[in-house]
Simulated scan of single mutants.
Amino acid sequence: MKENNSTAENSRPNQHSNHTHSHTKSRKRRRRSSSSGRPSGHVIFVIVFSIILVVTIVRLFLWNRGRQSDYDPNETTTEFDVEVMDYLQPLDPEMLEGHEDDGVTTVLALGNDLLSDDRSDTGLAALMEKSANATILNAAFPGSSISMKHQEFDNSYPLDGVSLYWVAAALLNQNFDLMDVIVPQMNSEAAAQALETLKSVDLSKVDDLVILYDLQDYRDDRTVYDEANDKNLTTVYGALTATIKLFQEQCPHIRIYLLSQPYGTFTDANGKTIDIDRDDLGNGTMVDYLNWEVEACRKNGVSFIDNYYGAITMEDTDCLTDGYHLNQKGREKIAERFGKVFKQ
């Protein structure tokens, strides 16, 4: 019996050992089976790299091929982006020392047809008065220009005597002898009224000076700038500079504004319609004139209000008559913009 028990007892560990060994082999098989179902790191890398490579090739192919665009190089469009060239220069407070403020904002306006065409209550000067809440003295001479045609006054061209600098000099020197001869010859009621206004100006009460001319200098193909003489009165830049300096020296309390020419077109002597934005008559397009006008303002510390891009552009032909003269809508548009800028 003991031997049997011993034999039985000795056989139990063997059974347990066999069971353990079998269980271990089973777990190894499961691990191998589990490992064989999961891709290795190298396989994953190859898959990801292949996907990236395929996507890159496809995108490169599409980029090289391009895509259909709606752009038509032959299309004519009137839409354009522009930047208004306003330049506002405040008056140095030192320039007001000794000047008495009478409480009324008085503006002297020098220029030509834009202001002189209509001197009524619906004219540009009157509209600017309302828009700026100021009193405007309209001393604009029809047919005049910023620059002179001749270096010195010549009786053969009397309009030089009412060009910008000569008007300023007559006013500041209080000498109207030449104008008393010229203006009656112009046979213009507007010119006579301008001279009358000019003679009545009290410069001590003038707070601001406005300079506003139309396309006259461009139409006459006047020189824009003289490198040898920046005060050459036969150039636009020179006449502006000389006039500004004259006012700054004798009436430093007056703040000066140059208002640019609005857009316009006209027909030349050969019947060709001139687009001032593109046609160079010999001294540049109107844009070249504008750039030198801005430069004169910056150089001399006065303000520039841009009507060319800011008020009457090539999109606003409904504001013009005869190509470049203002109609009522055009006057209202320029007056409105002037008032907004002037009040800043």
Rank of each mutant, 00 (worst) to 15 (best):
K2Y: 09
A8M: 07
E9V: 11
S11C: 05
R12I: 11
N14G: 09
S17L: 13
T20C: 05
T20L: 08
K28Y: 09
R30T: 01
R32H: 12
R32M: 13
S34C: 01
G37W: 09
R38T: 13
R38G: 07
S40L: 07
G41S: 10
V43E: 14
F45P: 00
V46T: 07
F49R: 09
I51Y: 05
I52C: 06
V54N: 00
T56M: 09
L60D: 01
L60Q: 04
L60R: 06
N64Q: 11
N64R: 14
R65M: 05
Q68W: 08
Q68E: 14
P73G: 08
E75P: 00
E75A: 15
F80T: 15
D92W: 08
D92V: 09
P93I: 07
D102P: 12
G103P: 09
V104H: 05
T106V: 12
L108T: 03
A109E: 11
G111D: 02
N112I: 08
D113C: 09
L114G: 04
S116T: 04
R119G: 03
S120G: 11
L124M: 06
L127M: 13
M128R: 05
M128A: 06
K130I: 08
A132P: 03
N133Y: 00
G143F: 07
S144D: 05
M148P: 02
M148E: 12
M148A: 10
Q151F: 06
Y157I: 03
L159H: 07
V167D: 03
L171M: 02
Q174S: 10
Q174I: 08
N175P: 01
F176M: 01
L178K: 04
V181R: 03
I182N: 00
I182Q: 00
I182L: 02
M186L: 11
E189Y: 01
A192P: 00
L198Y: 01
K199L: 04
S200C: 06
V201D: 03
D202N: 04
K205P: 03
K205N: 11
V206Y: 00
L209N: 09
V210A: 10
L212A: 10
L215Y: 10
Y218W: 14
D221P: 10
R222W: 07
Y225K: 07
D226V: 12
A228Y: 11
K231F: 13
N232M: 11
N232T: 13
T234M: 04
T234R: 03
V236G: 06
Y237V: 12
G238R: 01
A239W: 06
A239R: 04
A242K: 12
F247I: 11
P252C: 09
H253D: 02
H253L: 06
R255L: 04
Y257S: 02
S260A: 13
G264S: 10
T265M: 12
F266D: 03
D268M: 14
D268V: 15
T273S: 13
I274T: 11
I276E: 09
R278C: 15
R278H: 15
M286E: 08
V287F: 07
D288Y: 04
L290F: 01
E293W: 04
E295V: 13
E295W: 04
C297P: 05
V302R: 02
F304G: 06
I305P: 02
I305S: 02
G310K: 07
G310Y: 06
M314F: 12
T317M: 14
D318E: 15
C319A: 15
L320R: 11
T321H: 08
L326M: 14
K329G: 14
E332Q: 15
K333P: 03
E336D: 14
F338N: 02
F338P: 02
G339P: 04
K343F: 05
Q344G: 07
